[in-house]
Design a binder for these strands. Structure first.
Lengths: 216, 216
DNA sequence: TGATCCGCTTGACAGCGTTAAGTGAAATGC
DNA sequence: GCATTTCACTTAACGCTGTCAAGCGGATCA
């Protein structure tokens, strides 16, 4: 097949798009670093621009606004959380699997403070009102939990009054989230002597499981 | 006793101070209303000023900056929370008392969304670094919880591995806080079917207590 | 070679929290 | 009773933020 003008066209176009994708990625990398270092709110578009050697306005050719940029990073983080859940693998006992999920969730939350803050401690919504149909990747992590809890319920492992999978999932999730988020917002309060959050999470999960399972 | 110049002086001075206190209170009232209606971040000093019929700069003669204004309101709310805890009264059984405290805490959190958000979901600090020695009123609520949990531990009501009052208090607190805060930040997420938070809190407390108390 | 595209820049806008300097009526001192 | 001081409040501005309309200039296309 001869080299047509259209093939040259696509090659050029491909390179152009690759370059554009590169600066786009540079923006994401710079933003992530600054967000982690000095927080989302304190990071300015101008600071991001300086870091990548562009003008602030350049960012707006790749992201609608600051929220869109934040959201893109957030999406990736939700993916990583889902991955962490997935890596736990297929433990047979649904209660034990739930326990491991809780610990992995806490590890993720404590290893990525800035991301976690934004993902689960920032008032509402990365959902855009204009009929945006993008799939939310954190659905994965929640679905993992929901399925594991549902399995446990169907296997008769939980007490009969805890028959609602959504409610029980929200209880387990809230237990771990509560410790991590309170720790993050109040760890500097001098009148509270905080215990190491990983240990507290472990105790919390043990307490919740013991209080939720049906007596042997 | 004759009307001395000093008595006139103090009377005038008292009236001046009263007027100043009145505008100060007007600022607080206007700020509270706007904070509740449209959030703390979205409320501008200029908007507060318009609402009370003053210039934005006037606010700075009563409060050092926006954070100081926020903190003052926050202090009052911590007092109200402590009051709610106090009103539970002296229930003999420390475990049952703990349960009631959890429910009252959730009621406060769900009845005062804006305040709660700011008190317990805003990144760190109302603590000023310059050796500020003001007593934090929320110490009250936490001390209430801590004391109740400690009583339960001393009475042998909790399992032996939960002998640390701070850790167990933080677990109970986190359990309730987790549900409320997750609900506030994610109640609009379409892929999660949230249960009524008050019911979930009740179940959460039951689960935690059952998992924490020593078997009969 | 001339026309077109498009990633990026220039220069600005409105709004934010905040402040230095000033105003004017009330309180004070003689 | 008049001059002075006090002080709650205003005027006008500063530097910062996110954001955008308009335009440049090199690569691409016909």
């Amino acid at each position: 097949m001869a080299v047509t003008s259209s093939s040259v066209q696509t090659a050029s176009l491909a390179r152009r798009e690759r370059q554009k994708a590169e600066t786009r990625q540079a923006i994401l990398d710079a933003a992530r670093g600054l967000f982690v270092d000095q927080g989302v709110e304190a990071t300015t578009m101008r600071a991001i621009a300086v870091k990548i050697g562009y003008t602030p306005t350049a960012i707006y050719h790749h992201f609608r606004d600051k929220d869109a940029l934040i959201e893109e990073l957030c999406m990736a983080d939700f993916g990583a959380l889902g991955q962490a859940m997935y890596k736990i693998g297929r433990i047979e006992d649904p209660v034990e699997r739930m326990r491991r999920m809780g610990l992995a969730y806490a590890d993720f939350a404590l290893d990525n403070p800035s991301q976690y803050r934004f993902m689960f401690m920032t008032p509402q919504g990365h959902t855009h009102p204009d009929g945006d149909k993008r799939v939310r990747p954190d659905e994965d992590a929640y679905q993992f939990l929901l399925q594991t809890v549902t399995e446990g319920i169907h296997a008769g492992r939980y007490r009969p009054e805890l028959a609602d999978p959504e409610e029980l999932s929200q209880i387990f999730w809230s237990g771990v989230h509560g410790i991590v988020s309170l720790y993050y917002t109040h760890c500097n309060d001098p009148y509270i002597s905080w215990r190491p959050p990983r240990e507290t999470v472990r105790s919390m999960i043990d307490v919740m499981i013991r209080g939720a399972v049906r007596a042997a």
